[in-house]
Design a protein around this nucleic acid. Sequence first.
DNA 1: CTGAAAGCGCTTACAG
DNA 2: CTGAAAGCGCTTACAG
Lengths: 345, 345
Amino acid sequence: MTERVSGASVTLLDVARAAGVSLATASRALNGSTRKVRPDLQERVLAAADALHYSANAQAQAMARGRTDIVGLIVSDVGDPYFSTIAAGAIRAAEQHRLVVTIACTFGREDRELDYVAALRSQRARAVIVAGSRVQDKALIERLGAEVRSFEQSGGRVAFISQRRIEADTVVLENRAGARALAEELCGLGHRRFAVLAGRPDLLTARDRSTGFREAATRAGARIEPSDIVHGGFTRDGGYAAMIELLDRGTDATCVFAVNDVMAVGAMAALRDRGVSLPSGMAVAGFDDIITLRDVSPALTTVRLPLEELGVWALDMVLQEPADQPRVRRVRGEVVLRESTPKLT
Amino acid sequence: MTERVSGASVTLLDVARAAGVSLATASRALNGSTRKVRPDLQERVLAAADALHYSANAQAQAMARGRTDIVGLIVSDVGDPYFSTIAAGAIRAAEQHRLVVTIACTFGREDRELDYVAALRSQRARAVIVAGSRVQDKALIERLGAEVRSFEQSGGRVAFISQRRIEADTVVLENRAGARALAEELCGLGHRRFAVLAGRPDLLTARDRSTGFREAATRAGARIEPSDIVHGGFTRDGGYAAMIELLDRGTDATCVFAVNDVMAVGAMAALRDRGVSLPSGMAVAGFDDIITLRDVSPALTTVRLPLEELGVWALDMVLQEPADQPRVRRVRGEVVLRESTPKLT
DNA sequence: CTGAAAGCGCTTACAG
DNA sequence: CTGAAAGCGCTTACAG
């Protein structure tokens, strides 16, 4: 048992000496294209590394090689199942390529995306994936675009998941079309008066869903009163509060569309708390098809998005060489009708 | 507009030259203890850095400084709300200390924790937090312990969230006590025959909860038939399958305890699919109090764990200097009775 | 307060 | 196939 000072690390040089070879050979034996070092030396190096419990300094390797194995993922909140599912997909895919993913959360302060991209550039991350919704803010988009360009200029790759507002590869979510399809199905069920819990008005994702829904509903001859559109947080509590607000205002809607599932669940809770029975007293629909929420009762009608795949696809994009034109992969949601929106009789 | 070769980066030396100072001064002006460089030089450096859009190479800094700002978080699956909530807490806390968190998922293969800790040692991460349950596997614990010691020896800090099986700081979850308390409350409601959806038998977390529940229930005079204990996955689908299995076996239990909330929700779905009405036909209880699941109906009785705080606390631990004795912070769950377990009349 | 220089731990042309 | 040496981009004693 040899004592070792805490904090002292075994270096490649130690390994080389122990194996009686040069630094270069030790390096090649451990990480180089194997076929170029004599088998016996190779073995000695491996044995020495093992005996010394050597662990290569990834920072030093990164610097010498000029690249890292880091890919950054920027989300609003990993605690939100929408993002944690995307993250799971990205991480799963990353691991197959021996990449490490770093997660940053803006917690709703979208301007922090700027800082995070900058930090990732400083880390010399291989790539960054920005998963949150773009916001309605020209100046902010402008600045983020500049930051993204800097990142790319230093050799990194960038992909977005949401809207195509910045010149970069992006997995475009067809929120508007999805919401439209949902509205049509709901009208098909007999509904003619809807309310919309629209979420944060500056978030494009919320906005697109709300707009799409209203377009299609109106076109199908349904009515949506201005007072039946309630804005608020894009969260469970936001959905709850918005539903309460709607009830307080008074509404004759027979179906309420919350722009995402967690809001829809919040709305259901509010309805229950106010003694409205579900789904007979009010039909409810959401968007996303969050897995953890598949078992709420009544089962929630929604627009399914392949969340885990979104993470995988974004990672795949970012692993490809940049194309002349930024790539776009469009993803259409699929309407899933369930118990929360029964046929109106 | 100056053309710049893609991949080429502005270095500190470029900044120093542009500002007409030495490398050392540039470094100090940018990151050193500010007070030691003449204001006018400082300003020139800052201006130059800005003009060149300089971004310090974090890898190089880390190497020169001998430490990084990375803390690794190892979980089973970020897609699971239990872990994503813990992760959110850890990330939030890390950001306050300008630390970056890296997330690794074992996806149920606990032996991968070994690889991840090793990788984190290679990254020279400042610390690692292991959040998943320990497993019943002496050899594995032994090896992980060795890996942890190596990590600490190279100057890193380690904390666990779950059971205290390894010599390191840990946030200990009092699963057994929590499950006991739950069983007592349930008996207080009049139940005398229970079933337990016990999850993976090798996961200590699942085991402790199941054991604690059975102990207290039995002590209180309740009965749990061997056939009423069903093992399976520690997941939603595991809960669903276990409940179906239980129903197929036939049971006269009036209340079923699933060792975590997602399993409980799966069980509820199974009950519904089999036409059992809730909660009158079968009472259901879970464990964790997952926020996203707070709105299921009937509202789920459970044992609340301060999940987000667990992440915060673990991060705090890992930021402290190592103590002579590893620190232990015990966390007791709090029973929350809700609609899913009405009083038995 | 400032600068020249050594050093952090690797990788990789470049000779041999 | 192997090794000596330069270089990756910083930080930080050490002189001045």
